[in-house]
Design a binder for these strands. Structure first.
Lengths: 357, 357
DNA sequence: CAATATTGCTAAAAGGATTTAGCAAATGAT
DNA sequence: ATCATTTGCTAAATCCTTTTAGCAATATTG
């Protein structure tokens, strides 16, 4: 009938024991010498009263909150890197932790604020996530703070998680090669600066490096390398229109992301070319879009969800496992490549939640 | 040099005052009678030591954490309702609060767990969000708990925020009417069950109701009402292919979401029909997709971001403002309607973050 | 049997803030 | 000069849990 919260003292009283005993039993201390009967009485009392420990009080004493701070530029608030947060939430939940999500828009001032807000709340660790894999500036933190960089790197925090772009780049080339394609392959979205790792994501330069390495291994050459700065649908459209106008002999398009590929689809459609009969297309990201295109787009997914899960695992691991953790990118095979050889890394498509409003 | 946290006692000591005084001054109590000099000394000391209050300790005493629980089915982890969380984070940040994000996948068991995890951490209030606006089951909560339903409703929690679908439905019809279109309007995605509010989102039934009311007001009739259960691109494609086969005389397609519209684009494209010259299209959602289509799709955006902000405002408002809070949906005018009259509610398109990996 | 170990449990302190009750000095009223 | 207020500040209690140190009773050992 009383409106107050049930406290540990209440449980102890009902069990006829001291709060000390109740605490030891409920927190499952190993070395305690309390009787089996005491255990039973305390657990029964806790159940009967519906006891829930006050985590603020516990945090005050133990400095542990079972709370993780997820600090990102725009991960939670754009659709792009959504899997990162999905994986993080899922793994945190499984580990009995909870996630404080803070977005900074990449602004250093807000970043500092976010970190302070999290520190004030005694979080157990930090995950710094970035929408595009990149070096992220992390303001100074207390020495012992546990930190994992997710889809990001940092000079001061060596534990980081990245997609294995080099391998995926090679795999994309293999997919075309296995399909019997030898000539007329165009690279869509190449950019000198990016390739040299000067701008944007460091990982994309690895993707390109993987592509070139594998092309060389097979003795293949690009018939064209179309460069652009942004990777939007419009850019893909314009680049492919250009190629068609110049009558470059094309067999396959290796697009650096799905939006470029979407633009390519539009250009090819308007030119009356059929995919994959007249042209094969392969791409990266596995955007939601890729499944809706006609025909479905074969593309290498960024393993965001898996990366998020791994971030939580590393953050809560007993000792930190330093270094880069590369997560494999798997191909989702659809119908955009005229497959002659057998597909590798084939993944059946996952059902997605459908939407109605 | 010491590694320990700076505590209020340290500040008080440095200022030559009691912790009581320091607390009163730093929390900015109004009625205190402490001297101006004392204020100055305490603030100076806090600054010098870099004092940050321990929120766990404060929470223990005051039961306030400046933390909000955002509990949703799949909002944070799908791209669809992303704006909800963006708006929430933004407004919470502005109000000096922090957001605990918990996803339940809509499973009642996980919902209960999530609520308990949040209650254990003494959150100041709950926002229950749903991907599609719908009645959400909320497990019992302590009586005084502050709750806002976001894009959702609940029998027990009267404060809710919904998009103004009725109005938007009418506005979509007006857009076509203003463009001089009188005949050959097809409704794509109609569904009897949805319209009666029996399934899915309650708000979509309002959207349909707004559409029909406005059609009636103008004395217009649909030339066809194509029904389907899912609202994916493939459904739009199939429905429009069907209409074309049956040679229904079409002028405009009123699609119930952008994915259906995307499918319609594909079907029209394959049939060699041009938008908007041969066919106007209008739709709902303002999916990212809508901007990438050729031509750009005119569509009514779900005001998710604004809704998220409003949720925080209502949650933290001094007294709860009961009832439904309808947020207007604004049209983003692109090129998919042959505009003859003048466009209303025209919104220039916002730049979106571009993406490269 | 006396000395020692073990068992089963508890009192009290600690963690860091807020808040209630109240003290001493200065000021004002009579 | 005396009593009542006001001013400026503080001691101590409180929130709830964990943890250290240790007590009393029983069991074991020499």
């Amino acid at each position: 009938m009383s409106k107050k919260r049930v406290t540990l003292a209440d449980v102890a009283r009902l069990a006829g024991l001291s709060p000390t005993a109740a605490s030891m039993i409920l927190t499952g201390r190993p070395d305690t010498r309390l009787s089996a009967e005491a255990h039973a009485r305390v657990h029964a009392a806790a159940l009967e009263l519906g006891y829930r420990p006050n985590l603020a009080a516990r945090a005050l004493r133990t400095d542990k909150t079972r709370t993780i701070a997820f600090i990102s530029d725009v991960v939670a608030t754009t659709r792009f890197a959504n899997g990162l947060i999905r994986g993080t939430l899922e793994a945190a939940d499984a580990a009995g932790h909870v996630v404080l999500v803070l977005e900074t828009g990449g602004e250093p001032a807000r970043e500092v604020q976010a970190i302070e807000a999290a520190l004030d709340r005694q979080v157990d660790g930090f995950i710094f996530a970035a929408m595009r894999a990149r070096e992220v500036f992390v303001p100074a933190l207390p020495a012992a703070t546990r930190v994992v960089m997710l889809n990001a790197t940092s000079r001061h925090h060596p534990v980081c998680i990245l997609p294995d772009e080099f391998e995926a780049g090679g795999a994309a080339v293999r997919l075309l090669h296995d399909a019997g394609i030898r000539d007329g392959i165009a690279l869509i979205g190449h950019n000198q600066m990016v390739e040299q790792g000067l701008f944007r994501s460091e990982t994309v330069s690895r993707r390109l490096s993987g592509i070139r390495t594998e092309m060389a291994r097979f003795g293949l050459d690009f018939v064209a390398e179309e460069s652009c700065w942004n990777w939007e649908a419009r850019n893909g459209y314009e680049l492919v229109c250009g190629l068609l106008e110049r009558k470059v002999p094309l067999t396959a398009l290796l697009c650096l992301n799905d939006r470029l590929a979407f633009g390519a689809y539009q250009a090819l459609g308007e030119a009356g070319l059929r995919i994959p009969a007249d042209m094969s297309v392969v791409s990266f990201d596995n955007d939601e879009l890729a499944a809706d295109l006609r025909p479905g787009l074969t593309t290498f997914a960024l393993p965001h969800e898996e990366m998020g899960r791994e971030a939580v695992r590393l953050l809560l691991a007993p000792k930190s496992e330093l270094g880069e953790h590369l997560i494999p990118m798997t191909a989702t095979i659809r119908q955009s490549i005229a497959i002659i050889g057998e597909g590798r890394g084939l993944v059946t498509e996952m059902p997605r939640p459908s939407r109605s409003n």
